[in-house]
Structures are given as structure tokens and as C-alpha cells.
Nucleic acid binder design. Structure first.
Length: 437
DNA sequence: AATTGGGGCAACCGCGTGTGC
DNA sequence: GGCACACGCGGTTGCCCCAAT
């Protein structure tokens, strides 16, 4: 490429079509200002109209790129932190070169940034003769091998998560659901809750959301958001650094409330274990598009599975708290929960023993199917990302501090999903999510 | 001081996908 | 179904800066 810094002008097909000559190369400050002004007035999307309506001599693609990578509010500049680097490595090990998906997990970071970082890192490690992934990663892959299939299916995710686990801890996967989740009754917005999946040694399952905003009184409202038959959530025997719940299938778990869960297999019962929030962190920043592709896929599969014929209802025992079924003794896990949380329970069985992915899949996914959520907010509507904004009838200071905040709303124009009325947070369910990456 | 090579970064290109007609 | 269009993603290229030689 030979960017023409001096304002070089070239023809392109669209330029010829519109009888305009489009500029290429580095953007100037005045061009940036024009683009920012345009987006303020008209919102994101319809990028090809930018050139027509703003006088910018740039193609729509170029405008979109410039906006997304440089002008969009709340972009995080500067070097990646150690945590971010670690996350990138982890994510790459899981999903390969899915830069946009990775960016969705890293608030304020762009896919381009991550891609550049990774390529540089790759070169460096290659030169140093180091493996792409640190030794602790189980899923190393050669430089030129095709990326692993995205963990798009919950089943495949599980299937790829069963190296021998000598540890009693059974945290086995994390879903960064990096969007805002709104508690409708409190009109409180939780940023980037990280959905973690645990498996107790006794076969129990647990999901947790590591967000300190989820205190015990709040969490039940969250989990019951949108459910016709609210779950009975009571404090758990277990302490997480987050709020979570488990599907109890083993004797080691406390027998708590026993409501029916929508879309659970007929005749099955579910026990939900609430855990208190004792710690945790609020991750700064959230984005309209900061959603986990894993979660989306997970949910998609959930719905698919919910529709699929179940050959043997009796095998869905992961939600049966009164009986321990061998098939519910899940034996997956590839790591520990760093938080030091633990499950009490029996010793882990040998990998592969008594495994029934399907049973867990369906039960968990059925449960996930009932997860509520709200419509995420464009990331530039957030403040500086340093703390979770509290939405109270849309009069959040952080939002109001953004000039013409409401004018930034039409982002959804590009996604086809109208940004829901800000005052109606909490009225939407999981499956109303906008596109997830 | 000049050259070279690597790192960081920005921008473009090709292609796939979704949507509307 | 075919087509045009808009959009977004991933790959690639090239410029700038800086340290090493």
C-alpha cells in the first residue's frame, strides 16, 4: 500500500460512480472532525452516506474504520495491560484469529489493535523459538495450522475441556458476557459480568457472574428477570467471589428452593443455589457489541437443543437435586478458579468416567435459555468506564456528560436492531440480544 | 552519520454475509 | 433466485519511529 500523505487522490469504482475522487491514506484532523460531527448528527451506520452528506472525500469503509478504530468514544489507548495480554492469549487459544470476538472481550480495544498485537507477538515468539502459547495452555497449535474451531458449541466446548484434572476445583470455563445487564427493579446496570461455569465434584453445576455489583439482594432479581415463575434463590453453602447459582445434582450441595424452570424437561425439578458476593471487580467499559460470541452460540445451541428430541428424559438428571445420577457426574475441567473458591465434594473421578455431556448440555442450556438480559448500550454512552454507571430513568450523569448522548443512539441502525428505549432496560430477554460477536 | 531491521500502528483490500428489491 | 448494496471481518501492506550496528 502506498498511502498518499500529501492528499493523494485515486479513483475507485465507487468514486467513479459518484463522480467524486476519494481520498486515501492517513486521516487529517479536519477529516476526523468532519466525521465525528457527522456521526454526532446522524449516528453510526450508513457509512456510504457520510461522503454524500458530509463532504468527506472518503469511502464508507474508510469512514467506518476510522470511526471504529480511532474516533469512537471510550477507546482505550496505550499498551495492553498484563491482564489484557493474558486474555488475548487465552482467547486466541480458544477461538483462533477471531479478532472481533476478542475485541468484544476487551472493552475499549479494537480488533485491529488486537490483531496487530498478536501478529507482533507471534513474530517475536517465533523468532525466539518460543511456542505460541505458554506451556500452561493445553490447546497449543502450530503457527500455520488452521485456527481451532470456535468454541461455538457448548458441547464442543465441553469436549475440549477435559484434560485430566487433578485438582478438586472444577472451574472449567468462562464466558465473558461483556455487555451490560440491567436489573429492572433497581434500574442498575452491571458491566461486563463474566459468566463462569463450574462443575462440582459431586456432579453439581454452577454458573457465576463475577461482578461486585451483584450483591445478594440484587442477584435474585437479576436471575429471575423475565421469568414467569421466579426461581427461589437462597444463600448458598458455597462462597464465590461472585454471585452465582448452581444446578444441584449432588448431595454435597444444599437443597434449597425448588421452583420449576421454564423449558426444563417435563417432570424434572431444579434446585438453584445462590452464592453471596464477597468480592469481585467491576470491569470498566461496556459496548453495544461487547458480547460474547461463546455465549451467543451457547444460547443458540440451547434453543436448538430445547427443540431437539430428547431420547431419554430420564438422563436429564443434572437438575434433579434429590438423586445422584452417575450420568450427571461431569468430569470436565481444565483449570482452577483463581479466586480460591472451592466446592466441597467427592474426589474427582477419572476423566471420562460417568460422563454425559448431553445431559449437562441440555439442562444447563435450558437453564441458560431462561437467562434474562437487557439491550446493551453503545459504549460511547458510558462515562470514562471507571465505574459502573447507575441508570436511573436514563438520567445517568455519565451519559448526560456525553454531548448529545441521545444522538449517538442510532447505532443500531446498522445492526437492524433498534436500540431500545433507555428507560425500558430490563424488559428484554436473552434472545432479544443484538448481534453478538 | 548512515544504514538496517524490528516494532508499532494505520489503513486498504478482498471476501463473506445480510438485507431489500 | 438474482442482483445490488451496505456492512463487517480478517489478511495484508506500508509508513514511521527507534535502537542497534
Amino acid at each position: 500500500m502506498a498511502p498518499d500523505v500529501s492528499g493523494g487522490l485515486r479513483n475507485s469504482s465507487s468514486a467513479v460512480k459518484s463522480r467524486h475522487v476519494l481520498k486515501k491514506g492517513p486521516w487529517t484532523t479536519s477529516e476526523d472532525m468532519m466525521l465525528v460531527d457527522y456521526v454526532r448528527k446522524h449516528g453510526e451506520g450508513n457509512w456510504n452516506a457520510v461522503q454524500r452528506n458530509s463532504g468527506l472525500m472518503r469511502c464508507g469503509k474508510s469512514c467506518r474504520l476510522r470511526w471504529a478504530n480511532h474516533l469512537r468514544p471510550n477507546l482505550k489507548k496505550g499498551a495492553f495491560t498484563a491482564d489484557e495480554e493474558q486474555l488475548i492469549v487465552d482467547l486466541h487459544a480458544k477461538i483462533g484469529n477471531k479478532w472481533a470476538r476478542m475485541a468484544a472481550q476487551l472493552p475499549g480495544r479494537t480488533d485491529n489493535e488486537i490483531k496487530n498485537y498478536w501478529n507482533t507477538r507471534l513474530k517475536r515468539r517465533h523468532r525466539a523459538g518460543l511456542p505460541i502459547y505458554p506451556q500452561e495452555h493445553h490447546q497449543e497449535q502450530p503457527v500455520n495450522s488452521p485456527p481451532p474451531p470456535p468454541s461455538s458449541s457448548f458441547s464442543s466446548l465441553l469436549a475440549s475441556s477435559h484434560p485430566p484434572n487433578p485438582n478438586p476445583l472444577n472451574f472449567f470455563d468462562t464466558f465473558n458476557y461483556q455487555s451490560s445487564i440491567i436489573n429492572p427493579s433497581h434500574k442498575t446496570q452491571y458491566l461486563n459480568p463474566q459468566l463462569k461455569l463450574y462443575r462440582g465434584n459431586n456432579g453439581s453445576l454452577a454458573l457465576s457472574l463475577n461482578n461486585s455489583s451483584f450483591s445478594s439482594p440484587v442477584a435474585p432479581a437479576f436471575f429471575n428477570q423475565g421469568l414467569e415463575n421466579p426461581l427461589s434463590l437462597t444463600p448458598s453453602l458455597f462462597q464465590y467471589n461472585s454471585v452465582g447459582f448452581g444446578i444441584n445434582s449432588g448431595p454435597g450441595m444444599g437443597v434449597l428452593g425448588l421452583p420449576s424452570i421454564q423449558s426444563s424437561p417435563a417432570g424434572s425439578s431444579s434446585e438453584v443455589v445462590m452464592a453471596n458476593s464477597s468480592d469481585g471487580e467491576v470491569e470498566p467499559g461496556f459496548s453495544r457489541r461487547n458480547n460474547s460470541g461463546l455465549l451467543e452460540d451457547l444460547l443458540e445451541e440451547s434453543q436448538a437443543l430445547a427443540c431437539a428430541e430428547k431420547p431419554d428424559e430420564d438422563t436429564f438428571i443434572a437438575v434433579d437435586g434429590n438423586h445422584v445420577h452417575e450420568k450427571a457426574a461431569f468430569e470436565f475441567g481444565h483449570g482452577n478458579d483463581n479466586s480460591g473458591n472451592n466446592y466441597e465434594g467427592k474426589e474427582a473421578k477419572a476423566p471420562g468416567e460417568g460422563v454425559n455431556i448431553t445431559a449437562m448440555d441440555d439442562d444447563l442450556l435450558n437453564l441458560l435459555d431462561n437467562f434474562p438480559l437487557s439491550v446493551p448500550i453503545p459504549d460511547w454512552d458510558e462515562g470514562n468506564g471507571s465505574e459502573a454507571p447507575i441508570l436511573t430513568n436514563g438520567t445517568n450523569d455519565a451519559i448526560e456528560s456525553q454531548p448529545n448522548a441521545s444522538q449517538y443512539n442510532p447505532v443500531a441502525a446498522s445492526s437492524g436492531t433498534t436500540n431500545q428505549d433507555w428507560n425500558n432496560f430490563g424488559s428484554c430477554l436473552w434472545n432479544n440480544m443484538p448481534s453478538i460477536y
